[in-house]
Simulated scan of single mutants.
Amino acid sequence: MSYSATFFETHSVQAPSIDAEEIAKFSAAGLNVSDYYLPYQNYSVLQNPFRKFPYYSAVNVDGKRFHKLKRDSIFDGSERWAKDERIPEEAQWGNALYSAKNYDFDRGHLAKREYVQWGIDEEAARMAARSTFFYTNAAPQVSKLNRGVWKRIENYILHHEVIKNSMKICLFSGPVFREDDPEFLQKVNDQTVRLPYLFWKVVYYVKDGELYRAGFLTSQRRQMQKKRIIKPVSRSEESVRSTHFNTFKDAETYQVNVSFVEQIGQLSFEAATETFQSDDPERIILSRVNVRNDSNESAQMEEIVTNMNLKL
């Protein structure tokens, strides 16, 4: 089953909707938005055919029916990424991008493999996990972002909250598409590729009968520059760009109001209570407790997540 808005027994959480400006692009191109909303096992994706990356993934996570599977057991042999044949091939980037010269990115899952890894039995979980290996569920992410703080917070929420407490959550993740997104160093299939540098995540959960939500944002712009995989920009362009998000340090994760994600992502989310009430992003600092090198990582992550107002 694909993403379900009625996953919670007591509350409905619809997938985000894109704004009128984005919808107008579909109409102008003679396309229907609904044709690019793609159902998979335990999640769905809305593909952006103009940028060829997903607007977002929408995931149901059921900790009670989670099955632990090793990554190499998902396929018989090596991982197999594929384009989705339900939409035009030219509406999605594929291996030509991710294997291009000078490319130094991970295929960053938007719907994390483990998040969909649940079902009535292990085979159902395996099929769901396998379905995350479509290019429509991927966006280029530098390793420091994809495997760093972003991933550790994801893992903590999944393993120490959702699975441990047999909980359910609804999780949305996606890139921010901006006019000033930098260009990849080379063309792919004779086309210019503009790479998103901001990524967001919104989680919904039910606590004491009330629906809550929390938003997060992270950036990889300077990491892309450091790795020299995007075209250099002039000082004037860099000055203009930095004024927008100069408070965001690269590869760090910030808690933000969901309204902020709505604003920069041109999206609308289901209303819910938010315990984080600040107009200013709040940096989630893991380095202060040396999480990576300390054997007490679980306890420290629990303290951090509690301080983030995300104790589920």
Rank of each mutant, 00 (worst) to 15 (best):
E282W: 11
C170I: 15
Y36W: 01
G265Q: 02
P39T: 10
E302A: 15
V291A: 12
E210R: 13
V202H: 01
N309G: 15
M308G: 10
N296A: 13
R178H: 13
E302C: 01
A272K: 05
P281K: 02
F245G: 08
S166T: 00
Y98E: 08
A124C: 10
K226R: 13
N296G: 10
F134M: 07
K168E: 04
L110D: 00
G215N: 02
F245I: 07
Q300W: 04
D181L: 01
R178L: 14
Q225F: 06
D181T: 05
S239T: 08
S27H: 11
I74R: 01
K64G: 12
H109Y: 09
T273P: 04
I284P: 04
R51D: 12
L198V: 07
Y156K: 03
S242N: 14
A91L: 03
T253R: 01
S268M: 07
P140Q: 03
L217P: 07
S131D: 13
L310M: 15
V261E: 00
D76Y: 07
F66H: 15
L145R: 02
V305S: 03
E252I: 01
W118Q: 03
Y205K: 00
I285T: 13
F105L: 01
A271F: 08
V13E: 03
T218Q: 06
Q47C: 03
K151R: 15
P16N: 01
R222G: 00
R178N: 03
G209C: 10
L185K: 08
I169L: 06
N48P: 11
L195D: 01
R152M: 07
I230H: 02
S287K: 13
D190K: 11
F276A: 04
